[in-house]
């Protein structure tokens, strides 16, 4: 498990208290608490954090302050940005809700990844965050392609177990990023993987000028 996730679990209540001082809505407190985890987990990937607890609490305080500032500026900047208060209508509202929903899923997925053993976490993040191909990951880690495949496959299974253990319904994550799939229970064999055998991509991921 990542040290930030460990420290977050141990100090979640303290972090929540920080936001409770600034926000009245329980929902906002919850969202900002989870946002703190996201920020710190992202930081952990570029940096070795020696004192995860201090880092988390500091990030929470910064976030609470910038949230206060944002609230104060909200009305004016909205009008300036959109050219008028009525432009967005209800669509803006829907979009904000979709955004929050997406954020919550991201938190759940990030925690699932953070819970993985370090080698699995690293391989999965190289694939999904850095967008490297399996072949490229194998090269960087100096292991075989099949080792990476196995490691990432194992990471995927562990993420699924983690999410289930946390009470998530995996079907919630079935919605693709830009075209939500309405999956009915019992709807068998609903996903196909279309893989033209002619190989639409070269193995190193370069796609142009074949």
């Amino acid at each position: 498990m990542s040290e930030i996730l460990q420290a977050f679990i141990e100090n979640e209540r303290a972090i929540r208290r920080i936001f409770a001082r600034y926000c009245s809505r329980a929902e906002d407190v919850e969202d900002l608490t989870q946002e703190t985890f996201l920020k710190c987990f992202a930081a952990e990937m570029t940096t070795d954090i020696r004192e995860p607890k201090a880092f988390l609490l500091r990030a929470a305080k910064n976030l609470a302050l910038s949230e206060l500032k944002r609230k104060a500026n909200k009305t004016t900047s909205f009008i300036e940005d959109s050219g008028g208060p009525d432009v967005l209508g209800n669509d803006g509202q829907v979009s904000v809700e979709a955004d929050i929903d997406g954020r919550r899923k991201l938190v759940a997925l990030a925690k699932a990844i953070a819970s993985l053993p370090a080698p699995h976490r690293r391989a999965l993040l190289m694939r999904k965050m850095e967008n490297l191909k399996i072949r490229q990951i194998a090269k960087r880690l100096n292991v075989s392609v099949s080792t990476v495949e196995k490691r990432v496959a194992a990471a995927l299974v562990m993420c699924a177990s983690y999410l289930r253990a946390e009470g998530y319904d995996l079907a919630e994550f079935g919605a693709a990023a830009f075209a939500p799939v309405q999956r009915k229970p019992g709807d068998a064999a609903s996903v196909i993987a279309m893989t033209p055998q002619t190989g639409a991509r070269s193995p190193d991921g370069s796609k142009r000028h074949e």
Binding site: L106, L109, A110, K128, A171, F173, G174, A177
Partner: peptide
Amino acid sequence: RMNALWGALDAVEEL
């Protein structure tokens, strides 16, 4: 299930 979760994990690029 696995294919859908694999696709959903694309979201972590936002990190």
